[in-house]
Amino acid sequence: MLYDVLIDPFVQMVAVPDFFLQVIWEGFVSGVLYALIALGFVLIYKSSRIFNFAQGIMVVFSALTLVGLHSMGIPAIAAVPLTLLVMYLLAMSVERVVLRPLVNQPDIILFMATIGITLFLIGFGELVFGGENKVMITEQLGIPTGAFELEPFGGFVLIEQKDVTAVTMAILLVVGLLLFLDRTKMGRAIRALGDDHQAALSVGISLSTIWVLVWFIAGVIALVTGIVWGARAGVSFALEVIAYKALPVLMLGGLESVSGAIVGGIAIGILEKIFEIYWGQPFLGGNTETWFPFIFALLVLLFRPQGLFGERIIERI
């Protein structure tokens, strides 16, 4: 029994390396998507100290808008910019209606407000586009759907082209974002706001402009995530469960660290897959992916309360 649990899974990993590689690849792809969602969280948290629970629902909402617009007869080429416009309007109304009146309220109140946004978007999205599961317009967007077959170790590993597209898009997005944060005036303003609100305000950075911008960027990230995840799993509000996966990523990587979100996301994606395949399904009845990332992050945090990338906390009085 102990052998089965503690040693046998590792023996299998070595014995059937091509399958193991397949598992890692699958985990890696979902990890990249978790990282993307976590990135949206991090951006908003850094610039406004808001723990944006609605990030996950923005993923679904943007994907739903895209598919919904297309089904109304708008070609894919036009639907993407239109969806971006919708995300911009969303960012603007969130800033105007929710954030501005709630400025300076305790964290928990803003957090609750984002849950309010979540509910509103769910209701609104279902009202306009219907609640049933939809198919992402993968082909119309020009995303290749074939698959590569690699043959390492005499076995074979199946790599879907849309997953490769997903990873490529994610990398491009992250690089673009880092350049933007690092090189542009706006990017510097966002980082300044993250360090100290009042100091940033006093040197003439406009809070509301930055907030709209940041929420819009989060919306863009959401749209990219929505497209690639929708291509794998279809589009419906069931997708919001992946938003919860971004939370342990944040625990692991820290609420403010961009690199933490990326590394944490990929680590969690791969580990949860490995645990599910080698331990969850044989011993625990499967579906362990719902909780494994949380328990894992929790255990890591117990030994490193500052997370993987945080600095040592010195308490002052």
């Binding site: 309010g116 769910i122 209701g123």
Partner: peptide, 13 residues
């Protein structure tokens, strides 16, 4: 669902 979400925001404000 939509109205409850909106009301929560309204109450918080």
């Amino acid at each position: 669902v939509m109205i409850v979400g909106a009301l929560i925001i309204a109450f918080l404000i």
